[in-house]
Design a protein around this nucleic acid. Structure first.
Lengths: 111, 111
DNA sequence: TCTCGTAGTCTAAATTGTAGACCATATAGT
DNA sequence: ACTATATGGTCTACAATTTAGACTACGAGA
């Protein structure tokens, strides 16, 4: 039974950013991707809080990564992965948006 | 200077639904469009509250419509229109989403 | 006049989005 | 060895968005 709500706007972008990064989907990378793609600043708080919420909803999972060559942080890196549930949500949001944008290309493609 | 946040997920869909309806963009029609496109129920509260918020942000304007043939409600109908500001926001959201979806078509197109 | 359907307002609560302070560890420089 | 700096992440608290549902009003038809 599909949940009654859609993904929030930020949740959606976060999930997409993880997919973009694939194997490299750990914190800092994903966050950077997000900032680049949206052109806005993403605070740590916003970022990790949303990540955790997404996990508790089952749209996301993560594993601790072994420290690879050259890394020098203090805590273990988390590697993120979107679950099938998460992908299904993404598809639903996308389908709705696509349908609502139909025929509006002229208007919606900015400068 | 552009606002620092994006449109919420529902706000975005609402604006799109108005654009879709064009001349017919008054309450009931827009709401119906939304319900059809998303497949979920949109309560009056959700709908009008968001409409008003969008207006106060300047992304939307409305006018009272003269009662045309056949209409028989009690209150005057409101006809909605997306402002240029609103369109600009829509473009920003769309651009970000598009960039984040790049190359993921395989994954994002559902059944 | 009673009832139904249309339109819209209002209140309150749940969910999302956001910032920023704080913790811990490693590396570089002195 | 000691300090500064950078990395990666946790936590708290608050602001904004989303949502349901009760309530008001009016017209038309039985």
């Amino acid at each position: 039974m599909p949940p009654k709500t859609f993904l929030g706007e930020f949740e959606q972008m976060l999930l997409l950013a993880i997919l973009q990064k694939g194997e490299d989907a750990y914190g800092v990378e994903v966050r950077r991707e997000l900032e680049e793609a949206t052109g806005r600043k993403v605070s740590r708080g916003a970022f990790y809080t949303t990540l955790d919420r997404l996990e508790s909803k089952g749209y996301l999972r993560w594993t601790s990564r072994p420290v690879e060559g050259g890394w020098r942080g203090g805590l273990p890196q988390r590697h993120f992965e979107v679950t099938d549930e998460g992908i299904a949500q993404l598809q639903r949001s996308r389908a709705a948006l696509e349908r609502l944008s139909r025929g509006l290309d002229e208007i919606l493609v900015g400068p």
